[in-house]
Amino acid sequence: MPEPSPAVPAQESTEPLMGPAPPPETKERYFLRFTLAQRYLHGVLFATFLGLAATGLPLRFSGTVWAIRFAKAVGGFGAILFFHKFCALILTLAFLIHLREIIARGLFKGEKGIFWGPTSMVANWKDVRDLFAHFRWFLGLGPKPEFERYAYWEKFDYWAVFWGMVVIGFSGYAMWFAPFFARFLPGWALNAALVIHSEEGLLAILFIFSIHFVNTHLRPDSFPMDMVIFTGRESEEEFRQRRPKEYFRMLSEGRSAMRITDAPPLWLINFSRVVGFTAILIGLALLVLTLSAYVAG
């Protein structure tokens, strides 16, 4: 192990303070990371994604015992397809609402930081530098990079979902309304639609249920779950630890007061735990089924 760089000891001294929940006596400040609308969006996203995965996998691996049993249990493929399309419509709606918000905020209200800058989801050079720096830190070759509002892997998650929804959505609708789409597309595109739909769907399932789960929820710093997407709030300590660039930028801009909020109420924490763990467990179960189907051939 190479000598740790000077920044690391500073990190170490603060790490033990990052307990799961601070004692209620300390008057710790909380910051709002996600608005209620954003939390709802994530809620709709993961609920419909779980629904789509649970109904899509039996189709992709329709020869497996569990797929046939599942189909029998829910009333045949008719029910599976109905639920799949139902979830798809809800997710499409959520996607369009999100798109509308982005366009409204970015183009019409001229809000800065939507398309470019430290608070944007758009990748920039700092993300590339952070990626390399993060790898160096993994190997003990450098200090931990200081992240802005959205770290590079979070941006990747976002764009992977964004691209995934466009690709899976388009290919899905092409199959759903095949005779209609065949007016514009050649017939072989319908063959391609199934290949693309199922491969991209598998990528999404494998990525979300393994990489996203571990990166965001199950890694030691967040274990067993990062509640911020459910409560929307994080303590000042967590905020400074995880996204120091954003924290100090906000302080220097004097905008920190704008996002100060109260501590998440107990009911919200409990509710988030139940919902979050349910989602993670369903996701992991689907991951096991997917991998088992791959192994079985």
């Binding site: 993060h134 790898f135 830190w137 993994f138 190997l139 003990g140 892997w153 992977a160 990528l203 494998l206 990525f207 393994s210 990489i211 571990v214 990166n215 890694r219 030691p220 710093d221």
Partner: peptide, 17 residues
């Protein structure tokens, strides 16, 4: 994608722990 992030995640896990 999976190979890259698998490597990324495993290294991260080990380092964090």
């Amino acid at each position: 994608v999976l190979t890259f992030f698998l490597l990324h995640t495993v290294l991260w896990l080990v380092r964090s722990r």
